[in-house]
């Protein structure tokens, strides 16, 4: 057998490995300090963010992937609008202490304070957008990694109830503007949800109407 064909499977394997996600390298103490500083600096400078997102949910029991897309709007004064546009319509609005959840079939407004679960959801969502809360030891154990040119922060929930829903939440930061590009939520059963943010517009004026609830 020609030797090049003998080595072909190994070459293909290497090429495949090269195409996979970058391996995670734990950050050193100094790197961790720099990462936190840069992310916090970027977060402080960000008054608002508008972007598109693609969400991919892998359903292992069906061997199916559920893909949805939409728009996200964030304003620093505790305002968030997470709007799914396809293949279904769903709007989640956080306006300080109130949350609106609206579909074509239903509309519900709840008080964030009324539910521990909602408080955790809001905390995770806001951390995902602005990168804050990475030092919140009461809610998560936090590990920092380098992954090629990107940084990854892996949050493992501390609270028992949250751990039943998420085994880990992984935030991927780019090192150009130190904002979140991807959020991956792992579930205890092995399923995962990946949200990719794109077309980011920073510090644009977002009016109150975007976050209106009543």
């Amino acid at each position: 057998m020609n030797r090049k064909y003998f080595f072909l499977p190994f070459l293909l394997l290497l090429a495949h490995a090269g195409g996979r996600a970058q391996p995670l390298v734990p950050a050193t103490g100094d790197e961790r300090r720099v990462m936190l500083e840069k992310i916090e600096e970027s977060s402080r400078a960000m008054t608002s963010l508008a972007c598109d997102f693609v969400q991919e949910k892998d359903l292992s029991i069906l061997d199916e992937r559920l893909v949805s897309t939409g728009r996200m709007y964030y304003r620093r004064d505790n305002r968030l609008r997470w709007e799914y546009l396809a293949p279904y319509l769903y709007t989640f609005v956080l306006n300080d202490e109130k949350i609106l959840m609206q579909t074509g079939m239903s509309r519900e407004v709840v008080d964030v304070k009324s539910s521990k679960l909602f408080r955790e959801i809001v905390k995770i969502m806001m951390s995902s957008v602005n990168g804050r809360g990475l030092t919140d030891a009461k809610s998560f154990t936090v590990a920092f990694y380098r992954a090629g040119a990107a940084w990854k922060v892996v949050l493992v929930p501390v609270q028992r109830e949250t751990r039943k829903v998420f085994s880990a939440i992984e935030l991927t930061f780019n090192t150009a503007d130190y904002t979140v590009d991807e959020v991956r939520m792992d579930e205890p059963n092995g399923d995962a949800t990946l949200i990719r943010l794109s077309n980011k517009r920073f510090n644009a004026a977002l009016d109150d109407e975007t976050f209106a609830i009543d």
């Binding site: 029991i61 559920l66 949805s68 799914y84 279904y88 769903y90 959840m101 579909t103």
Partner: peptide
């Protein structure tokens, strides 16, 4: 509210319901 995916498999059905955020 949420999204339900339902699939016919040999001998029955399988399905999964997630909320809109994928949980």
């Amino acid at each position: 509210t949420g999204v339900m995916v339902v699939k016919r498999v040999p001998g029955g059905w399988r399905g999964s319901m997630v909320n809109e955020f994928g949980v």
